[in-house]
């Protein structure tokens, strides 16, 4: 029994890492990876929302009617994000200033709705919470890694501590283009050492497979209708 719970952690962190393997949640990954500390705070905020939403959805999985499950999930997630946003605004104003809009946008993060749809609405609350912790940690690790590389190359610091003088840093890495460059680099490295990722789906999906659980489902329906 214990193994099943630990397997969820391993699955989220490594086997199905939401950012590096499943290529979900690209918007926050690109946007907030300007510094390692931003990656950690954003990752942990998402983790909190994900664990709570997985728990609530799992508890209510037999109560929510199937036809209205997506709006119900969205309301649950949006309420949780509002709570997290207000807490961060009250107790961690510096984090709020650094992440701003992207805390609000956790609500449309496909990792959260995706896990609700793919896991939490079919499994027990205990397993769902572990799944949320695993996926949340996987997201946090990936964001922090991207932030670390960008901060090191772009400002010559790691978590704010100077590694080499700023004159030698490549300033563009902490500007918007650096985000695309670092993620491209990550995918190139993973391709080169033969780790299977969903990178081809990311760019060839017709948008149906990209971001959110919600659009993925509605999209297939709409495609059928138009045909």
């Amino acid at each position: 029994m214990k193994n099943k719970y630990l397997e969820r952690l391993y699955n989220g962190l490594i086997k199905e890492n939401p950012t590096l393997v499943l290529m979900l949640g690209m918007c926050p990954t690109l946007a907030v990876s300007t510094a390692a500390i931003n990656g950690i705070t954003m990752g942990l905020s998402s983790l909190a929302v994900l664990v709570l939403s997985n728990f609530l959805i799992s508890v209510m999985r037999n109560v929510i009617p199937d036809e209205v499950r997506l709006p119900a999930y969205i309301v649950i997630v949006a309420s949780l994000v509002t709570v997290v946003k207000l807490l961060i605004k009250a107790y961690l104003p510096s984090v709020d200033a650094a992440l701003g809009l992207y805390i609000d946008l956790i609500v449309v993060n496909c990792i959260i709705l995706g896990r609700a749809e793919a896991y939490a609405n079919k499994h027990t609350p205990g397993l769902s919470v572990m799944d949320g912790i695993g996926m949340g940690l996987g997201f946090t690790v990936a964001l922090t890694l991207a932030g670390l590389v960008r901060e090191l190359l772009g400002a010559g610091t790691v978590f704010g501590f100077t590694v080499f003088p700023q004159e030698y840093a490549v300033g563009i890495m902490i500007q918007p283009p650096g985000a695309f460059l670092v993620i491209a680099l990550f995918i190139i490295i993973m391709n080169a050492i033969g780790i299977k990722t969903r990178q081809h789906e990311l760019v060839n999906s017709d948008g149906c497979d990209g971001c959110c659980a919600t659009c993925a489902m509605r999209c297939e329906e709409a495609k059928e209708e138009v045909k």
Partner: peptide, 18 residues
């Protein structure tokens, strides 16, 4: 081969961003 797919698109996006 390793650059095919998503990386080359992201590199193009990076240049556009610059």
């Amino acid at each position: 081969r390793p650059v095919r797919g998503a990386p080359v698109v992201m590199l193009a996006a990076a240049l556009m961003s610059i």
